[in-house]
Design a binder for these strands. Sequence first.
RNA 1: GGAGGAGUGGCAGAGCGGUUGAAUGCACCGGUCUUGAAAACCGGCAUACUGAGAGGUAUCGGGGGUUCGAAUCCCUCCUCCUCCGCCA
Length: 426
Amino acid sequence: MLTLRKIRENKENVIRGLEKRGWSADRLTIVDQIIALDDKRKETQTSLDQHLSDINRISKEIGGLFKSGKGDEANALKSKISDIKEISSTLESTQKGVLAELDELLLSVPNVPHDTVPAGVTEDDNEIAEHWTGDLPDLGDDALPHWELAKQYNLIDFELGTKITGSGFPLYRGQGAKLQRALISFFLDEASEAGYEEVMPPLLVNADTARATGQLPDKEGQMYYAEKDDLYLIPTAEVPVTNIYRDVIISEDDFPIKLTGHTPCFRREAGSYGSDVKGLNRVHQFDKVEIVQIAHPDRSYDVLTEMVDHVKQLLEKLELPYRILRLCGGDLGFTSALTFDFEVYSAAQKKWLEVSSVSNFETFQSNRLKLRYKDGNGKKHLAHTLNGSALALARIVASLLENHQTTEGIVIPKALVPYTKFEIIK
RNA sequence: GGAGGAGUGGCAGAGCGGUUGAAUGCACCGGUCUUGAAAACCGGCAUACUGAGAGGUAUCGGGGGUUCGAAUCCCUCCUCCUCCGCCA
């Protein structure tokens, strides 16, 4: 959520940003609506405060009068107060309405894109920031897509997953299950080595938590919901991990805060069908290692680069061809100011699969989180939050199986062998 | 799941209807003293909104209520502790 201060003080900048996201002039009037509503909020509050102040003052007088035995005078003041109370309670309910409306408008405004975000509408307008320099692997026509390989080597049983739960819940078995475990350990170790503290958060979160990172109310339909307990299954570790710092004021020397965690991720993906959801391309449950940083505003873009480099290095160790996209305004997530997507090439499908998304949210999340830091003068400011997948398993597995298939079997990348403890899947 | 107890500032802990945003201690920051440090002493030390400022308003787990007035009384939800039950 943008701060009112940002909207008021950098109105033109906000508008330019929203235009980059493809907002029409019509829609942009929301900015002025917000400012007008905020004016009303201030005005109402000032008036309300004045009346409350009167009530407080008179109440104290009444207290004094009762003490000194002047009950009659006190009772006279009581009737005077009831008029003021009537006005103040009207103002109060007006203010409640204003605040609710203001909140609703603010929640509907996405983050302002960074200057380097290209204009554009769809994913076709994303800018390729970096591209695999070698040739893309050409496996010939005999190459099998990962779901065939999974079946051939008995790594993943999609039908069993469907039987037990439903479609999109694959069951990994044998070397497939071990490969999952190996990847998770590998990613976590790499993150630890890069200075991230490992955490294992809860997989169900409450509404306050989901709201703070922006899943509610925006992406309500994306999450599984346990109604009886009013809890949501996490769509990403970002949600519980970032919320560690909800309502926290840190000191400036605490920067940088680096956290990593592995969790299963649950996504309803309602309305997705077709070849996009074939095999592991899009599933309802997958494992992911997430990296999260809380950074000083002056440093957050350096941190973003650092995180991008971290992910890059993982893909190189896994020997997977990848490219990095700088998302355009139209494709940028609601809460993000700048996002780099990583895609790996899945050589049998001849498709690029998104396996990571690394973003700087600037203060968009921290505003809702109320995550602040104290500077040297004891002044409080919102911190910047960033996160990235490092990495998302299901699609990595898909790409890994496809790219590394040989007539002998599927060759495990060298970096991963210490974790799988086998060099080839036969 | 059942019965009982409790939730106050960074921490500990008073207050249980009337200048209490909240005693006191510890921690922390600044100062005096000291060659330096410690001790001692003096001062400061929650968050948010609002105002040029003085100040005003709100917040004592969350929400609602009673009252002229609530940290203090009532209702409700949440969390923690103790006992019982269940259990990886």
